[in-house]
Simulated assay, not measured.
Amino acid sequence: MRRNYFPLLFVLLVILAFFFNLLGFMNMVPIYITLPLLLASIYCMLSSIAYQNTKGYRR
């Protein structure tokens, strides 16, 4: 059985981006850099979880 590790990878990426965003809220890193990273990682995580069981285009 083949396991898909992309959802787990993206969950870890969201956690990392969240802590990076906390640094942005403390004005250590510019917030206009951290917020798009957080939103992009959340989007990638949700899309990988939602489409992990599809096998392409179905008729």
Rank of each mutant, 00 (worst) to 15 (best):
M1K: 09
M1D: 09
M1I: 08
R2W: 08
R3T: 14
R3Y: 12
R3H: 10
Y5C: 09
Y5L: 15
F6G: 05
P7L: 01
L8C: 07
L8V: 10
F10Q: 08
F10E: 08
F10K: 05
F10W: 07
F10S: 10
V11L: 13
V11H: 04
V11R: 10
L12D: 15
V14C: 13
I15R: 00
I15M: 06
A17F: 03
F19T: 04
F19C: 04
F19R: 03
F20G: 09
N21G: 07
N21P: 00
N21F: 14
L22K: 06
L22A: 06
L23M: 14
G24K: 02
G24A: 02
G24H: 01
M26E: 05
N27C: 04
N27R: 14
V29I: 15
P30W: 04
P30L: 04
I31M: 14
I31G: 04
Y32I: 14
L35K: 03
L35R: 08
L37V: 15
L37H: 02
L38K: 00
L39T: 09
L39F: 06
S41K: 01
S41M: 02
I42R: 02
C44A: 15
M45L: 15
S48R: 04
I49L: 11
T54K: 12
T54C: 10
G56W: 00
G56T: 03
G56A: 02
